[in-house]
Design a binder for these strands. Structure first.
Lengths: 220, 220, 220, 220
DNA sequence: ATTTAAGCGAGACGGTACGTCTGGTCTTTAT
DNA sequence: ATAAAGACCAGACGTACCGTCTCGCTTAAAT
């Protein structure tokens, strides 16, 4: 319990007193996932989680600061190895497959949570920050490996900041996901990645020169 | 009042009965903006709007279904001509200036509302839909003009769907805005637009062929 | 309109402007009665009356101070000669018949209004006062005639205040009506009047001497 | 808390969970009484009770269905032994003293509540029913003891139903209390009881024969 | 074996916003 | 001038959910 608030490897504090019930944690996360597959994050109440988990509200609040973080924990625990990080030998193919896989997941009930965490994050910095640290960066680090391979193989320009590359590939689709203004179909993934690779400018048009890379928050 | 629920050009129903108080509408929108500059959408209450506007809660609920839509209305009414749609003769420059302007606005108190509407939209389809129709599409239509000019001048490949182009340009920055994982500095706008124009792939690398254009939402 | 607030014989002011619609008054009273037969006074709204009468709320508030007084007006207008004031030659029979008739009426939908006016009157002195003046005293004056006849015929002790006599006869039944603690059946009327005439004390028991009459608010 | 909804002798459920705050209940009732002494039942709001009691509105709604029943509860809790049930050896004196005491109380701020409960009861059967069960019947049972003694001592005719006797004694005064058409002075109590004992009919007048006794509510 | 501190279930509690309702007033246009 | 339509204000309503709290019971390490 409390992946979030505690060091995951903290040596289960073997002091006095009753020990944490492992079933309780599992039960809470399971119940939360169950509910999240049926209702939106906003519609779910701590009460409902507690009831379904057969656990008291007190216990939940003891280990998580609020419902949103319970949900994030549940989300993270169910995310392990759901999305592929392909290695086909082609960066373009890798990114296309990955984007397609991610987009497809985002359309599923649980995938919708992605948007809901970002949504809650708009008014709760804590959850947004945790979402970044524990979900987003992990994903981006994995994707950065694909980028690195592409750079090494001479498929991707090394002078473009990896942060920009990743945002260019995932940003547009996430934008569509969040506002619903564009299609999330399978083909769109390929079309977008293709456009990102080839650029939208005509080859002869030379005004658009790529500036030199710059340091950013976090990068390889 | 009720920009949202009524046709803007409706012939102000001059039938019987007391007319809608124009001051009331203006007052509500003004009060809402005032509050939104200081607090987040979530923190604001209908009561507070009513009180500050010197209007009764009943009146607010009569014309708007809930506070979110009041805020959207207020947002829209204050948006007119806040963001420039430049026409420099260069699509690259146009998009760069525009993205910079937009990004800068999004960092302002009122600009933060953009993310908050999307956030509320994740659990309230009505607001998301209205946000798209009345804000997003308007912006995109304007931006599409810039794109069109670029295509005509031979600066932008005409075979790429304009929807993708727009998402490629704005999506990454909005992604950063919403999750806070990347910089929103002035230079980033240019770097992103540059990358979008030039593409991330090496010129010689030919696997990334651009597919044929497609229409918004539906596709072949 | 406005039996209550206006002098009934006021010369329909034939000055400028649109004349008062007599139909409006009739329509309001009729609509009110219609509603009062189906719902309790509390459940009825001015709005509903206006709507059913095809009249605007304003008009109602122009002629009556509030819904309760509209209802009282409607009640009074429908009361004319609904309850008998018998004259059988026997005071006992007169009162019995009268009480039976009154009780029976009180059990009807419209009769229930009696209690509802008293109820509203507990928190609105105006309606209680009007109810007394325009309904109660009228009834009591009529009943006092029956009492007078009984006294003249030597059936009723003349030394007991008529106010007390009337309250003794009607009070118990009204008490039952308002609290619902006792039966309102036909036979009860006779039993009560009989008890009132004969007294509950044993004939020989002489402690209960009737005091001399005293002046009270209103009497013959 | 919840005298109304729970058996008073319920063995204070000492099961799991936080125990009901006894101060909360007491505080609510006390605050309610305080307010009821200053304003009418109708004028008091749940909010005001909550605020004055230093208790949340939720808690009030948890234990009472609405403010009227809170007030009834408060009323009942303050009623214990406020009204005397005399035993002078004379039924006539007993009833006179009792009626005088009751009438005097009914003129006090709290006593006015009596009428207000009956008023609310006209549109809310629940409160009327509870008022009967928990207040009226208790009083009548006590008064019936006085009647019983009178019967045994040969002061009161045993052939008259006790229900009628009680209504004859209290009904007239309550009628006056509720409609305000008659005096509630001290002397009136004696005059009324005297009239009830002696009867209003002349001794010689023999038409008014007392019918056989009957049981409460149902009858032959 | 007995402390004793923590975990835990149950559920009461304060707080706050919600969206609804009703009473009564005010404003505009039509008659 | 009066009516009809209906916008408006004021403020109470009862509900929902949040996160905290107080119990009494259970568990297991420390004594």
């Amino acid at each position: 319990m409390g992946q979030i608030t505690e060091f995951p490897f903290a040596p289960a504090n073997k002091c006095r007193g009753r020990q944490r019930s492992v079933e309780a944690e599992a039960s809470v996360l399971k119940a939360t996932l169950y509910l999240l597959e049926r209702k939106s994050l906003r519609e779910i109440t701590t009460e409902a989680i507690a009831q379904r988990a057969g656990v008291s509200k007190t216990t939940i609040y003891k280990w998580w600061p609020n419902k949103n973080l319970v949900a994030l924990d549940a989300y993270l625990s169910s995310m392990t190895a759901r999305v592929v990080m392909p290695d086909t030998g082609s960066a373009f193919k890798d990114f296309t497959l990955q984007l397609r896989s991610v987009t497809s997941f985002y359309k599923s009930p649980l995938g919708r949570l992605f948007g809901q965490f970002i949504a809650e994050g708009q008014s709760d910095p804590a959850i947004l920050s945790l979402f970044r640290e524990r979900f987003l960066y992990a994903r981006r680090d994995a994707a950065r490996v694909m980028w690195q391979r592409g750079v090494m193989r001479g498929e991707i320009r090394k002078e473009i900041d990896s942060e920009i590359v990743l945002d260019l590939i995932y940003g547009p689709m996430i934008f569509r996901l969040l506002t619903g203004h564009g299609s999330l179909a399978e083909d769109d993934s390929e079309a977008m990645v293709a456009a990102v690779f080839a650029g939208i400018g005509l080859p002869g048009y030379k005004e658009a020169k790529v500036p030199t890379p710059r340091r950013r928050q976090k990068k390889s």
